[in-house]
């Protein structure tokens, strides 16, 4: 069986995301459009990858909760907000834009 080079897509083309904050902890929900997309995202969008790709941003523990029936993954990243809304020097002290940091990542599609 010939192995083709994989096709890739921006996560933004495969999923939606919403970010929230509690103190210095960011939570980012990623919701896949389809069952196929969910499988690919679940396999590739791991806490380890987030930390490897954005080491300056995700410096603390990152946990991932899976909701397969809803095609959703929920990421919880501690110490990701420069101290949180009342302490950060970031213009976006809430980390509202972090959802789109993830949505800019590349995901390999199966069967490419």
């Amino acid at each position: 069986m010939t192995r083709h080079s994989p096709r890739t897509a921006k996560l933004h083309d495969l999923a939606s995301a919403r970010a929230g904050d509690k103190g210095d902890t960011a939570s980012i929900a990623v919701i896949a459009d389809t069952r196929e997309a969910y499988a690919a995202i679940k396999a590739q969008l791991t806490p380890e990858r987030l930390r490897a790709e954005f080491p300056d941003r995700f410096r603390g523990p990152v946990r991932r909760y899976e909701l397969p029936a809803l095609l959703a993954l929920n990421f919880v990243a501690e110490r990701a907000l420069d101290g949180g809304v009342n302490a950060s020097l970031n213009l976006d002290a809430h980390g509202k834009a972090l959802s789109y940091l993830l949505l800019g990542m590349e995901i390999e599609l199966p069967g490419g």
Binding site: S16, R18, G20, D21, K22, T25, S27, A29, I31, R63, Y65, L67, L70, A72, N74, V76
Partner: peptide
């Protein structure tokens, strides 16, 4: 469905 699901997970850590 999408607006409701996004909001259900908003600022939630462990959904369980």
């Amino acid at each position: 469905r999408r607006t409701v699901l996004e909001q259900m997970l908003y600022e939630v850590h462990d959904p369980a």
